[in-house]
């Protein structure tokens, strides 16, 4: 079924909103779903893995991207989790 991970674009949002959006998206998604959060907030790269650990999910990937026009030049991260619970 899968065409890659589902994407939650939280770029431009400050902590804890990226994790809040991720959790809202993850609600009622089936086990095994992969979700990628995009975030410019530097706290997200620590808090998304911490959320996954606290909720029993798995971190799949973490990528750092240089800033572009879309992010006002700010570095952003793509953090992918797989729902396990």
């Amino acid at each position: 079924m899968s065409a890659g991970p589902e994407v939650v674009d939280a770029r431009g949002l400050r902590c804890p909103l990226p994790v809040v959006r991720l959790a809202a998206h993850a609600k009622e998604r089936p086990r095994g779903t992969e979700i990628t959060v995009l975030a410019t907030d530097p706290a997200a790269r620590y808090d998304v893995p911490a959320w996954a650990r606290l909720r029993g999910h798995a971190m799949v990937a973490e990528e750092q991207h240089p800033g572009n026009d879309e992010t006002d030049g700010r570095t952003w991260w793509a953090l992918t989790v797989r729902l396990e619970d």
């Binding site: 400050r14 902590c15 994790v19 907030d41 530097p42 706290a43």
Partner: peptide
């Protein structure tokens, strides 16, 4: 140690290094 509480966007480097939740 959360970001934004110290006038910076970076959270506490201590919490980050431990891999624990930095917000709240």
């Amino acid at each position: 140690g959360s970001a934004c509480t110290a006038g910076t966007l970076e959270p506490s480097h201590v919490l980050a290094a431990m891999g624990v939740l930095t917000h709240g």
